[in-house]
Design a protein around this nucleic acid. Structure first.
Length: 424
RNA sequence: AGAGAGUUGGCAGAGUGGUCGAAUGCGGUAGUCUUGAAAACUAUUGUACCGCGAGGUACCGGGGGUUCGAAUCCCUCACUCUCUGCCA
């Protein structure tokens, strides 16, 4: 959520930022917000004045009663009642405007960073660079959905029977590969200075609002009506919400956390071509890294996070490329986002395995997450996060790229976790 | 899940209708003293919004109500603790 003060002080920049996201009536929206804010301030001032009068009378009444001046007290009561009534009406007005303003603000996306290229869809994301060699696969090489059947390591049919489409069973070496990847990712994150966290995988409504899943994206999350809890779509939500409402000291920063969780996504309406096998699931595992940073450090932290994830892919021996997301593909909350995609040799496709985003103070403003700097001034922090990494597509690429006649070769770095070097 | 007791400032803990944003203690910060530190002493020490400012307003778990006036009374929700039950 953008700060009203920011909108007011950087009006032109905000309008242009929204236009970059193809919001047509950006100017109108900004004007409307500033008008509402002025209205809110005026109403609040009026209400506060009325309350101040009422409070004053109340104190007088107290003293009059004590000294036995009943008649005077009765007079003051009448005046207090009047002011109180007035304040009540104004209060209702303030609340109404505040709610409306808040609601408007919730629906305004973050302002893209200047380096974000203009573009309507993922097709216009900018490929920054490509690293690693695409595998030379023999004729007759198979996509991963065939390989998992051949080696009986993941069972979609069983998932259909027990849960539904998109909830596979991992079996034997498949399950072990999952465990190995999780351990590898977490160990690397801890080595990079992240605090390992095992968060809850359900969240309440307030947390959903804090990181921006609510309102608007409730349709993407599984919801348990009886307890009003949402299944998390990513560990970002519980981990970032650890600090919701907090006021941190400058010397405790940055906060770096990493956590492994299953992630649940309804993916309503997003099934179509290219979603076979592990490419898109309702439940998948992911290790997420989250950083809470001072504004001055967030850009550097962002770059370090990208490098961390690239290092993971290099250690796994997967060819990857780095994308700078264009304005049309940038998520609502982010101001700058890099995607990392791995090349999956048999599908001959790039698969997104990580999104590393800087949210600036957009989430922090929702979360009311601030810090007190060394000059004792409080200000909003910056939040960042990235997948490090999402498992299914990494596994898909490993299966496809490492297939041989004898079986699938397990990347060296995983072998100490798997205890085997080939899936056959 | 049943019965009971709670939820007050960074922490502990007083306050059961009137100048309470809230005693007191601890902690924090600054200063005095000291070669330095400790101790002691003194002062200071919540957050947010409105206002150029003086200042005003709100917040004692959340929401609502009673009253001229609520931390204090009522309703409601959430959470915590104790006992019983159940359970990994």
């Amino acid at each position: 959520m953008l700060l009203v003060s920011y909108i007011s002080e950087n009006k032109l920049e905000v309008i242009q930022g929204l236009q970059k996201r193809y919001i047509e009536n950006a100017e109108e929206i900004v004007e409307e917000i500033l008008t509402m804010d002025a209205e809110r301030r005026q109403s609040q001032k009026d209400r506060d004045d009325a309350l101040a009068e009422a409070n004053k009378s109340a104190k007088e009444i107290g003293m009059l009663m004590k000294s036995g001046q009943k008649e005077e007290a009765e007079k003051a009561k009448a005046s207090a009642s009047e002011n109180k009534q007035k304040a009540k009406e104004l209060s209702a007005k303030v609340t109404e405007i505040e709610e409306e303003l808040q609601n408007k603000l919730y629906h305004i996306p973050n302002i893209p960073h200047p380096s974000v290229p203009m573009g309507k869809s993922d097709e216009e994301n900018e490929v920054m660079y490509e690293k690693g060699e695409k595998p030379q696969l023999a004729d007759g090489s198979k996509p991963h959905w065939d390989l998992i059947e051949q080696y009986d390591i993941i069972d979609f049919e069983l998932g259909n029977k027990v849960s539904g489409a998109g909830f596979p069973f991992y079996k034997g070496k498949g399950a072990r590969m999952q465990r190995a990847l999780v351990s590898f990712f977490l160990d690397e994150a801890v080595a990079a200075g992240y605090l390992e966290i095992q968060p809850p995988i359900v969240i309440n409504e307030a947390s959903g609002y804090g990181t921006g899943q609510l309102p608007d994206k409730e349709g993407q999350m599984y919801f348990m009506e009886a307890d009003k809890l949402y299944m998390i779509p990513t560990a970002e939500v519980p981990i970032t919400n650890m600090y919701r409402g907090d006021l941190l000291q400058e010397n405790e920063l940055p906060k770096k956390m990493a956590g492994h969780t299953p992630c649940f996504r309804r993916e309503a309406g997003s099934w179509g071509a290219h979603v076979r096998g592990l490419n898109r699931l309702h439940q998948f595992d992911k290790v997420e890294i989250v950083e809470i940073q001072k504004p001055s450090e967030s850009a550097n932290a962002h770059e370090r996070m990208v490098k961390h994830v690239e290092m993971l892919l290099e250690k796994l021996g997967l060819p990857y490329r780095r994308l700078l997301l264009c304005s049309g593909d940038l998520s609502v909350n982010a101001n700058l986002c890099f995607d990392l995609e791995v090349y999956s040799g048999a599908q001959e496709r790039w698969l997104e395995v990580s999104s590393i985003s800087n949210f600036g103070n957009y989430q922090a403003n929702r979360l009311k997450l601030r810090y007190r700097d060394n000059h004792k001034k409080t200000q909003l922090l910056h939040t960042l996060n990235g997948s490090a990494l999402a498992l299914p597509r990494v596994l898909a690429a490993i299966l496809e790229n490492n297939q041989t006649e004898k079986g699938i070769l397990v990347p060296k770095v995983l072998q100490k976790y798997t205890g085997f070097d080939i899936i056959d």
